[in-house]
């Protein structure tokens, strides 16, 4: 609460109700995603001035496409984190989905069928995660850590740990889907925009979204209102797996080949993107915009290190600092709120 929040005399109850606590501006300033956005914008601006390689259409195209995969998976991760959970298996799920796609297409199946099967395999991973977490009450960290290992192993078994780089009759279509562009925008970026809008809509405008926020903040209270907490949890992990599955299909098309180390340790960048964007690992908070901006910031940092000729070994240091900074920012704000 702000200091102007202290009791005032109101002419009527209606005045009191209409009286807005926060101005629109102060509300924006309080949003972590806004500050991350500013940070990313400043980084871009500085790079555009310092280097003559950053602001080229080709580089911008590459940057946006590169972060699209992390950002798509981060959308699902954000939903999981809002619900109070975590999903460490997204990188492996992405790999499994890409591998199922690759093997089926390699065997001569059409793209649509293979993509459906790929996403179905991802959804199955999410379903197993969700059932174990919701019904057996095994901590999400443990279940998805196990699944991280399991799903990647499944991809290895399926492919006999070989790289797949021939995709049958629909190969061109797949490469166009993941590696092509329309209106000068890379297809993964278009997919990201559409999926981000969808996720934002679901979180803000559906009962499902409200319930995800509710269980993240107070699971018991949510259960007492009659919300189906267990089913909701399963849906949340399936949502995360779905986004990983979609990203897997797109990334297979972009790379033009699938190996079993695809998406390895991707969960770290994905969680980092969500957290930098304001998702609270304790649950109950997170935004779509924030996670996309968080993913963008990570990629801009990576890109800038390359352009500035700094060793990419430094990337981890920057991303790590940003994670800690983002959480520290949140803590400071909470402390300030408490001290009022």
């Amino acid at each position: 609460m702000t200091s102007e929040d202290k009791p005032k005399e109101f002419a009527s109850l209606d005045d009191a109700i209409d009286w807005q606590t926060h101005s629109y501006f102060s509300r924006i300033l309080n949003k972590q995603s806004f500050w991350v956005f500013i940070a990313a914008a400043i980084a871009c601006l500085a790079l555009a001035i310092v280097t003559d390689t950053f602001a080229t259409p080709q580089n911008l195209f590459n940057v946006t496409r590169n972060f699209a995969f992390v950002a798509i998976v981060a959308l699902g991760m954000t939903v999981v984190i809002i619900s109070g959970g975590i999903d460490l298996s997204v990188g492996s799920t992405l790999c499994l989905s890409a591998m199922v796609l690759a093997i089926l297409m390699n065997a001569g199946n059409p793209l649509w069928l293979s993509a459906l099967a790929a996403i179905a395999s991802a959804l199955l991973v999410g379903l197993v995660n969700g059932l174990l977490i919701a019904y057996l009450r095994i901590p999400p960290f443990v279940v998805t850590l196990g699944m991280l290992s399991l799903a990647r192993s499944a991809a290895m078994v399926l492919s006999n740990n070989k790289m797949v780089f021939q995709f049958g009759p629909d190969e061109k279509l797949l490469f166009w889907l993941g590696g092509g562009s329309s209106f000068g925008i890379a297809h993964p970026v278009i997919a990201l925009v559409l999926l981000a809008l969808l996720t934002g809509f679901m979180l803000k405008w559906t009962r499902w979204g409200t319930h995800v926020f509710a269980i993240g903040s107070n699971e018991r209270a949510a259960g007492l209102t009659g919300i189906n907490v267990l089913g909701l949890k399963v849906s949340v992990y399936m949502c995360s797996a779905f986004f990983a599955g979609v990203a897997g299909v797109l990334e297979a098309g972009w790379l033009g080949g699938v190996t079993t180390n695809l998406g390895q340790s991707m969960e770290l960048s994905v969680i980092a993107a969500s957290v930098i964007g304001g998702a609270n690992l304790m649950g109950g908070a997170g935004t779509v915009f924030g996670s996309v901006v968080g993913a963008a910031l990570i990629e801009v940092i990576r890109n800038s290190l390359i352009l500035l000729g700094i060793s990419t070994f430094w990337q981890g240091a920057f991303v790590g600092s940003f994670i800690i900074l983002a959480v520290a920012f949140d803590r400071l704000r909470a402390l300030r709120d408490e001290s009022r």
């Binding site: 559906t206 409200t210 319930h211 903040s217 209270a221 109950g284």
Partner: peptide, 29 residues
């Protein structure tokens, strides 16, 4: 009290029995 801190007063009041309206094929809050 069993309330959800991160939601508004109105959303808490209606939690689990939200009012919706149709928006194309969807039911939205």
């Amino acid at each position: 009290l069993a309330l959800c801190d991160n939601l508004t007063a109105a959303t808490n009041v209606f939690l689990g029995r939200e009012l919706t309206r149709s928006f194309g094929p969807f039911r939205v809050m």
